[in-house]
Amino acid sequence: MTSPLLDRARAGDHDAFAELVDPYRRELQLHCYRLLGRLADAEDAVQETLLAAWRGLPEFEGRASVRSWLYRIATRRCLNAVRDAGRRPPLAPTPPFEAPEPTRHNEVPWVQPYPDVLLPEPAYLHRERVELAFVEALATLPPRQTAALVVCDVLGFPLTEAAAVLDTTAAAVKGALQRARSTLRSTATATAPATAPAASRPPAHGSAEERRLGKQFATAFVADDVDAVIALLTDDAWLAMPPAPHQYAGPAAIAGFLRASAAWRAGRRYSLLPTRANAQPGFGCYLGGAPAGLVVLTLDGDRIARITRFMDDSLFPAFGLPRTFSRSPASAAPSAQEQDPDAAPGRW
């Protein structure tokens, strides 16, 4: 049975269609982000989904819910996008100084952060399903396994409904789901250091402890106080800089990189503006007034387990961060001519 709102939308009422689909926009975008790993790609997929839904309204008979129908379209668009474009890593930025040898290389350097301002409200109740580590783990799976895991384990669709969303059988979904779960468990076991302690829950979202850790990190980072930064880290912490593939694991390796960066800057200091990404604290980073990466912190108890600095300055507008930033509130932001040329996008 169709609803009066659906009947109006099928009759060509654009306002009725908007009223029908608007409640699902944010969760659809987050769904597409989980499948694609990139904010811009997720936004494109949602637009394509809504256009396809509008065009396909005459064929929609209302036997499934509007939500399930939209997820079916969105999932198909995302799987097609991955198949058509592949997962080619973006061009890695060139370090402007001789960086230490990395500990390891990032398998999924194309993954981007997701602004908290775009998260549906319930996402904070299950923030482990939006954190960077989870999205990156999803990106290592075959696309249909990723889709099965997201639709069943994250969204909670039963097998029969998930099969309709994925255009397959319940048995096929169950098989893909089992393989995805097994791979993620194996990956987590293989990448965990043998001496690593059990992970602790991060501080509550927006809590005083979370703010304290963020403030201490920001104070130490902008002062180039490497020892103070290292004191905030877990023993198995690591530093990543997507889309550069380099990763530095352990306090000693991270300290080596931070000291090399500070030596190259020769007294020039970063500025940080707070933001949030993937239900985690973050900062817009600036050097000489120009964007110099987006820093996201992964917290583990009362310590920082991971520092991810995304070297993609095109992300700043999505996080509400200005394109230029001056340390002194009384001074104007520097002009393009006054900005430090070494802090251009794509630099470390």
Rank of each mutant, 00 (worst) to 15 (best):
R104L: 11
L155S: 04
R327E: 13
T219E: 15
L35K: 04
F257Q: 15
T275E: 12
G86E: 13
D167M: 02
V108N: 02
T2V: 08
A290Q: 08
S200A: 12
P100T: 07
Y24H: 14
L166Q: 05
A163H: 03
G288L: 01
A85I: 13
N106Y: 03
P142K: 03
A99H: 07
G346L: 01
Q112A: 03
L35S: 09
R306H: 15
T160S: 11
G293Y: 00
A40G: 11
T140F: 00
V117Q: 10
D84F: 14
A249R: 11
R72G: 09
A252H: 15
A137R: 09
P197W: 04
A190I: 04
D7Q: 15
L232A: 12
L184K: 04
E19M: 05
F316G: 00
D116I: 01
P281C: 01
S331A: 14
A9N: 13
L287C: 05
D302W: 00
A218L: 08
P281Y: 02
F221D: 05
P197C: 07
A252K: 15
T308L: 00
G12A: 11
P102K: 03
A240R: 08
D227M: 04
P89H: 06
A344Y: 01
Y270F: 15
A240L: 10
A18W: 02
V46A: 11
Q178Y: 10
G250S: 08
D227W: 03
Y248Q: 01
F134Y: 13
V222F: 10
L20N: 04
L213N: 04
A42P: 09
T160D: 15
P102H: 05
R63M: 05
C32N: 14
R34V: 09
L51G: 15
L297Y: 09
A336T: 11
S65F: 08
H105P: 06
L273Q: 13
G267A: 13
P23S: 10
L166K: 03
V66K: 03
A292Y: 14
S65G: 12
G267S: 14
S186E: 15
E136A: 08
D22S: 14
C152P: 01
E61H: 08
E161Q: 07
A220T: 12
F217W: 12
T275H: 08
P158E: 08
Y248T: 02
A92G: 02
Y71P: 06
T140K: 07
A133W: 04
Q112D: 09
L239Q: 12
L79P: 12
G12F: 12
A123H: 05
F310T: 06
A64G: 03
G289K: 02
T103A: 07
T187I: 01
V173W: 02
H205V: 07
P90K: 00
P291D: 07
G267V: 14
Q339G: 05
A192I: 06
P322S: 10
A162N: 02
A52F: 08
E161A: 04
A133S: 09
R88E: 14
A194R: 15
W54D: 10
D167N: 06
V150F: 01
A218C: 12
D225V: 03
A244Q: 06
E59Q: 03
A163C: 03
L299Y: 07
L321A: 05
G293N: 05
R129L: 08
D224R: 02
T195I: 06
C285S: 05
C152E: 09
L79K: 10
A343S: 10
G289M: 04
D15T: 14
Y248C: 03
L273N: 11
P341W: 09
L125A: 13
A199K: 09
G289F: 00
P322H: 06
D44S: 12
L6N: 09
